[in-house]
Design a protein around this nucleic acid. Structure first.
Lengths: 202, 202, 202, 202
DNA sequence: AATGAATGAGATTTCATTCAT
DNA sequence: CATGAATGAAATCTCATTCAT
């Protein structure tokens, strides 16, 4: 007996993208808990049935969102890696409210959806490796020598501080934020003196 | 216009505490999104109506939970302040999975419930001040002198790293965690040499 | 076996009056359908249980309201009867938005509560008789002679027109209202020439 | 922001009509306050969810009822207009217990539901205009000349008297009803001498 | 590829009422 | 007199999902 096809809508359908866009909008504005077939459909101006046609279950939809978010995050980090100043580009990404806020929604979502949790765990580790690549490229051996910290640890720390700034910022709390930001920047300066316009260290 | 009494059951009722306990259990095991009158009642072995008697709206219940959590967190931090080694006691608290995981649920919840958000924002700032008190007591002027960071900034950073460890740990991700932990501990050692059993510096 | 006392609170209690006042306010502002033990209690700043103490069932409360309204209406009509110009005083009452709007709420309520219906029916007939007394006093035999209408019929007609004006006015509809009002006033003028300040016909 | 489709079931669905029929029955027998998803569904022999499928909110259902009632009333009045004796056909309609009782329920309902109120207000004014058309056709200029009343005023008066008869009849009150009815009929006779079988005035 | 109909579950809240104190 | 606790019923609405077309 043939197994029912899991995803019916084509992977590259415009409607499919429309649904994902509407879902992202919803998550951004009202949090992941507001994602439901109906609400997404209303946002996208489609019928609820059509959402089900592309994403048979809500898990499918959320997992697709999680995947899409992960891909975008990969793209951002790769861009950082190719930039002149990968370290600071990474830090900008890790403290960017608009992106990290959505990532935090997925973290919270991961607590409630096993499929999302599994995917997020995988992506989180992959991201760590990408970030380690950035540190190696930007810092070479200076890192361990100077600060006695493995690049994986640095990745945890920067991600944590960035998320703290975004999370608390979302609550309207800002006490200590400038100080924390300044500290990270000083630290980065010590690790990798800022790159000037013409590519030489200052 | 007369204001309807908001909290119905007495503040010190045993039933009220039972409901809050059941709610906390639920949040811990299945996340805040699983909190509903029905589920809480089932956990507590009560009728849903009784939950509504004590907490007319779900907001009331969640807000009460948020308050109770905040009080407990205050207690923990005050305890740390009074301990022999406040700095490390604070860090242990900030990276304690069992407590911070619940705090993270409330952070996520704050995105969806205005009443909780307002309360969390207030508490987050109050906590920062309490932590600053700890830093001042433990480090005196050594802090700014040695590391060039305001105590508020240090609070943001340690909270962020602690939350990162707990959050990722919840996903099953541990890469870099030992390194990050070691880094913080080294840092604390540099700031405030560890206290020995008999109370003298090493 | 003794029958449980039906009304527990004393008839002349201040609390009892407070409850009735709050109920009237509610009916006036939000309609009879909004009357519930809880809402009334909230309005009056009392506990719901206390409302039940005075009015064991909602029927008791609504019936008491109906009675109180009837008594007030009786008082108004008697006042009209004793006035210099009973006919016009009656018409003013029958087209008075503030009073008739509440009376209409009770008419609607009567459809849903047997106890209220029975009471309203009785009061409606009693009112008719009172109004007939007014017509007899004001018009004597001129009525039947001039218009060929029994006073009971006149009561029906004036009440109907008055209620139409109030009812439609509540909807914001006013087309034809001035004309209808003018017609009634002309009619009254024909029946009973207006009384001047010094009590003589013009 | 995309607007969610408000009415879900097709306008001409048999199920939709079934639900409206059940609702009308309920209103007729137990008053508008008894309309609830459950009760309507039980009447119609459907599941409550299906009622919600066609009428997402109770407002939608009641508004649809109001509209349907208005359409029927329009039809009745147009029929009166086309009849041999439009004036008396209109009066028969305005004093027809079975129809006006439901209309009164909607009037009462309008006090509690904004959407219904708005619709009723519009319909009430439209009805006035239709009735004015009847008066003009039936009476021509005789109206103002003979009675000194604008047709709009006459509409208010007849509607008010008709409603009074139905309203009080519902309570079981009949005192003065025959007299009022006779008065209106005399009046109509004076205004427009009754049409005989062969179309000539008597 | 898309859609309308239907359904069962459950979340949230309001309610009237009873009971013991 | 008055109140706190408790409860069962029901109203309103949202949801995910299935199915037939």
């Amino acid at each position: 007996m043939a197994v029912a096809p899991r995803r019916v809508g084509a992977e590259n359908s415009a409607t499919r993208a429309l649904i994902l866009d509407a879902t992202e909008q919803l998550i951004r504005e009202e949090g992941y808990a507001s994602v439901s077939t109906r609400r997404v459909a209303a946002r996208a101006g489609l019928k609820p049935s059509l959402v089900h046609y592309y994403f048979p279950t809500t898990d499918d939809l959320l997992l697709a969102m999680s995947r899409r978010g992960a891909e975008e995050s990969d793209r951002m980090i790769d861009e950082a890696l190719r930039s002149d100043d990968p370290l600071r580009a990474l830090w900008r990404y890790l403290a960017d409210p608009s992106r990290i806020a959505v990532a935090l929604e997925f973290m919270a979502l991961a607590n409630h959806r096993k499929a999302v949790r599994v995917h997020m765990a995988g992506h989180c580790e992959a991201m760590r490796e990408r970030e380690v690549a950035i540190f190696r490229k930007a810092l070479g051996e200076r890192l361990a020598a100077a600060e006695g910290i493995a690049p994986e640890g640095l990745s945890v720390i920067l991600a944590g501080i960035g998320r703290a700034l975004v999370m608390e910022g979302g609550l309207g709390v800002t006490a200590g934020h400038d100080a924390a930001r300044a500290f990270v920047e000083q630290w980065l300066d010590r690790l990798a003196p800022a790159v000037t316009q013409d590519g030489h260290d200052t």
